[in-house]
Structure formats: C-alpha cells, structure tokens
Simulated assay, not measured.
Amino acid sequence: MSEDVMPEPVVDVGGARELARDVLVVPDRRLPLVPNIGVIGGRHSVLVVETGLGPRNAAKVLEFAAGHAKGRRLYLTTTHFHPEHAFGAQVFAGEATFLVNRDQAEDLKVKGPGYLEMFRGLGEVVARGLEGVEIALPDVVYDREYDLDLGGRVVRLRATGRAHSRGDQVVEVPDADVLFTGDLVEAAQFAIFPWFPPHDTDVSGTRWLAVMRRLAERAPRVVVPGHGEVGGPELLADVRDYLRLLRDETWARRDSAAGERTIVEEVSALMIERHPEWTGREWIEKGVGCLCAEHPPPGPDPVD
C-alpha cells in the first residue's frame, strides 16, 4: 500500500468486545499493520496478547488492560516477533511479565533490529509509529509449551515450530474454546509469506500447512486471526485449504519445468479466481517463491 493512502496504524481500544467471559478482543478494524489484540482474565491475573505497532499503541493497550485488570497481575505475550505484534513490548516493562517461546525470543534478539529498519522504510506513517522503539527481550522464555495459570483459568501457550515465522505460537483458552493464532491465520486475506531471500527465508509453506492441519483438527469455537474478522473453525480450514492448493499448483508446474515467473502468473490467476474477495494478492507471489524453494526432488506425491 502506498504511503499516501496508508491510514495511521492506530489501535482503538474503544472497540473492544467480549468473546467469552473475561476474554476480550480489540479488533484491528481492517487497518494495515494493526493486529487483533487479546485480553484474557482469570481470578488473579490478566494476559495481553500482542502490543500493537510501537510505544504509543502499546501504551493504550497497557492502559486498557490495566483498567480491565483492576489490580490483577499483568502478563504479556506475542504470537511472533513482527513489528505490529511485538514492537511495543518495552512499554510493558515493570508493569507486566513478558513471556514467549525460545525461537521467538531469538527472533526478537537477532532479527528484530533488521525488521525495525525495514518497516521504518515503508513510509512516514509507519516510521512515526515506530518512533522510540527499543526491542524488548522477554522475562520468561519457554521451549515448546507453557501453561499460564491466571487463577481459575489456565491459558496454553504453544510454539508451533517454523511456519509463518520461526517462532510462531498460538494462545489457547480451553475453557472458553478460543484460539488466538497470530499471522498463521488471516481472515479474507491471502496468507502473508515474509519470503525475502537472501535476508529472510524462515517462512515455510510446507511446515505451515502441517501446522494448519493440526489446528483445523481441533476446530475451536472461536478463532482470533492475526488480522481480519474473528470467526470460527472455518478460518483454520480456509488457510489449510489455500496452502494445500498453493503447494499443489506450484509443485505441479515446477514438476513440468515451468519457470518461476510463469508459475507466479498462472497460480496467482487461479488463486484470485478462487478467492476474488480476499485482500493481500501481493503475497501469492511470495508464497510461490517459498514453495518453489521447498519443491522436493522427484518422488512420491505429497501426502495430505
């Protein structure tokens, strides 16, 4: 999106709504670089999921969460390290315990500074939102699984392994049957493939598809995507089916020795025909590039 038409990536906590008892979402309002933000409460603690882009957004999120907590202890987690999800964590220092999985902590430390500079280059609107950002490192780091007791409610943090990023995690609220997915899932949008060789090639279409198969099998009642409208298990199925089709169509053309530009053009046309209402068409090409790189040598067909 060009700078002159990009709206300010501002979080509006006034739009918060309850998905279940003491489980709230601050919706993205379909604004670029604004994530869906979660606030999950228990008897003695409250967990915030995502910070918004930069310190000013994060300050609003913290104020809203503290007001909702009414003295309860605060925790913060982020679904992955990308700027609109995690580059406000510094604001929570001293106010909340910040916890993420080990791979995400490494992403923040190693890749965070580069992403900060890259996003600042997206235009003045984004650069203003990132003013004063310092990459915050977590207080608590876990390996694969972490069960956070909020008091009468246990929230499950689960590292999925490499998919949209190396350090993706989902946040499950089992008693309410709510799942926060981060950018593993977008609603009515083509999957975001941050495929930027040689600088960043951590995204994996094949591993992402495997993650989506597992998540879709659980069929949670409510799914909060990284961006877009909150929905149900159909959001998980939509992404699973899209990634499978993207892989199959890309690999079929790769098997026929088609060039990558031809594959991009043909697969993009097919995907847009299938989902004409979805946004983010520019990400189809990135997905094709990623899956071309993951194309296996001749052998058995991929297993679904």
Rank of each mutant, 00 (worst) to 15 (best):
P55Y: 01
R29P: 08
L62T: 07
G41D: 11
L62C: 04
D28I: 02
H68K: 11
L47Y: 05
G71F: 09
R17D: 00
E18V: 06
L74T: 13
V34K: 01
H68V: 15
N57C: 13
G42V: 08
E50V: 05
R56H: 06
L19D: 01
A20T: 04
G71Y: 11
L76F: 14
R72W: 00
A58L: 05
A65M: 08
V11D: 05
V49W: 07
L47W: 06
P83Q: 07
V26E: 02
K70I: 00
I37S: 03
P32C: 01
R30D: 07
L24F: 14
A69Y: 09
E18C: 05
R56W: 03
L53D: 03
N36S: 10
V25G: 01
A20K: 14
T78H: 08
A59V: 02
V39R: 03
G41T: 06
A16Y: 04
G15K: 15
P32Q: 02
L31P: 09
P27K: 02
A20G: 14
F81W: 08
Y75F: 15
A66G: 09
G38E: 00
K70T: 07
H82S: 10
R73M: 10
G14H: 13
R29T: 10
G14C: 09
F64V: 11
V10I: 14
R73K: 15
R56N: 09
Y75A: 04
P35H: 00
V10N: 07
I37R: 02
D28N: 13
G67V: 13
L76E: 15
E50T: 10
V48L: 05
R72A: 04
T79Y: 02
A58N: 08
S45W: 04
V39L: 07
L24A: 03
V25F: 00
A69E: 12
G41R: 01
K70A: 15
S45V: 07
H80Y: 11
N36D: 10
A69M: 11
Y75T: 04
